[in-house]
């Protein structure tokens, strides 16, 4: 069974879990922007701050590493590229390629910024139920008459719901093709076409069946939505995070 844990909600009773989804989105933006403005020490502080939030929310460091394994490889790639390409004092010279101190610092900084962003996103997704995210999207889009908030939120929800199903179908298609020795065909384009066409066909068929099933359950644009309500704790958290972010930018 396909499971995409990086994008899935984990039930819990932490402070982060209890914050209103709209406040969480706002906090996400505030910490994200602070990360862009912060010095290396400030960035390190924000990284520890967000990491503490994840641990407090009940995410184990080992799981976190598992989830972000591929992303960490990507960061390593960026770090290596930056380290060998930026200016500064040369540290080591391998043949005609030099490793620079400026590159090392710059690489570390970029990687840390990206890592803070990724952890923030993970913290948001793992502590917020999709129901609340959808309600928050609807609330944010309410002032814009041209944006159908309820439709956009339903589409977002459906997308999150069906990512694991599509991945499962992709694996089934891939296994079925391996069972018929597709690996003996060396042309990657041929393999890609033979993989994509049945997968897309099945996905579109599935989309048709979902539409019929939703119709059978009386789906329409007018429906009872999830009621979001802000509490005193949400405001306290908002002001605390604003103060922490300002102090990080000013003093660190």
């Amino acid at each position: 069974m396909a499971e995409l844990t990086a994008f899935s909600y984990r039930a819990g009773f932490s402070i982060v879990h209890s914050i209103d989804a709209r406040f969480k989105l706002l906090l996400l933006v505030i910490i994200g922007v602070s990360g862009l403005k912060a010095s290396p020490a400030g960035l390190l502080f924000l990284f520890i701050f967000v990491l503490s939030g994840l641990i407090h929310a009940g995410i184990r460091l080992r799981d976190l590493f598992e989830e972000l394994r591929l992303f960490l490889c990507f960061l390593l790639f960026i770090f290596v590229i930056r380290a060998f390409s930026a200016d500064g004092t040369g540290l080591i010279k391998i043949y005609s390629i030099s490793l620079f101190t400026g590159g090392l610092k710059e690489g570390l900084l970029i990687c840390l910024k990206l890592l803070v962003m990724a952890l923030l996103g993970l913290l948001f997704v793992t502590t917020t139920r999709m129901l609340e995210i959808k309600a928050a999207i609807e609330w944010i889009l309410k002032p814009f008459p041209f944006a159908a908030g309820n439709r956009i939120s339903t589409m977002t929800g459906l997308m999150m719901r069906f990512i694991p199903v599509i991945l499962e179908k992709a694996k089934e298609t891939s296994d079925a093709q391996k069972a018929r020795c597709i690996e003996n065909r060396k042309n990657p384009l041929y393999r890609m076409v033979k993989f994509a066409i049945p997968l897309l066909g099945r996905t579109f068929n599935n989309a048709g069946r979902i539409a019929v099933a939703m119709e059978a359950r009386c789906y329409s644009d007018t429906r009872t939505g999830y009621k979001l309500s802000s509490k005193k704790n949400d405001w306290i958290m908002l002001f605390a995070v604003i103060l922490i972010c300002m102090a990080t930018i000013v003093y660190l």
Binding site: S8, Y9, R129, L131, L158, M160, R161, N206, R209, A213
Partner: peptide, 11 residues
């Protein structure tokens, strides 16, 4: 699978 459209059982 096509009838279940939300992310949790309750929803």
């Amino acid at each position: 699978d096509s009838q279940i459209v939300c992310e949790t059982v309750r929803e």
